[in-house]
């Protein structure tokens, strides 16, 4: 894969969340035909999932790749990985939480990010860290 089509960003503090957003915005604009709404979906999911890295694992990284289907349609794949505490119960973590639990629980960051994706996958276990794959394809 062409080096220009891959981007790797470390997440170690809150400033990195914004830094990653700025880099991925340019990356999307240079490589994909996304509407403003589609770009907003990608940047919002990025914001939610990088914040989860910072909040739960302290540090990790996000790797962005441009994918292409045989029919020519392109998409962005974002892989978020950390060596944090992991998610003991993924099904539970993906359930939307009532607003009263927002303060302490995972809230809707994870479940909401899944709803913004075309393809979404979580690999995680307690004490084993977390790898989340988020993919969104061009519509036209």
């Amino acid at each position: 894969m062409d080096a220009a089509e891959r981007l790797e960003i470390k997440i170690a503090n809150e400033a990195d969340i914004l830094k990653s957003r700025n880099k991925i915005r340019v990356f999307i604009m240079n490589n994909l035909h996304f509407s403003l709404l589609e770009r907003m979906h990608a940047l919002t999911a990025l914001s939610e999932l990088t914040r989860n890295i910072f909040k739960y694992a302290g540090e990790g990284k996000v790797v962005a790749d441009i994918l292409q289907k045989p029919n020519g349609k392109k998409g962005i794949q974002l892989v978020f990985s950390d060596s944090g505490p992991g998610i003991p119960d993924i099904d539970e973590a993906l359930k939307p939480k009532p607003i009263s639990k927002y303060q302490t629980g995972m809230g809707i960051g994870l479940s909401g990010s899944k709803k913004l994706a075309d393809e979404f996958d979580i690999e995680s276990a307690e004490g084993k860290g977390t790898i989340i794959t988020w993919i969104r394809w061009e519509r036209h």
Partner: peptide, 15 residues
């Protein structure tokens, strides 16, 4: 509008 649609799609309730 894009912000509103994104938050709604995520299941966020603006209450």
């Amino acid at each position: 509008p894009e912000m509103a649609l994104t938050l709604t799609k995520m299941g966020f309730e603006w209450r």
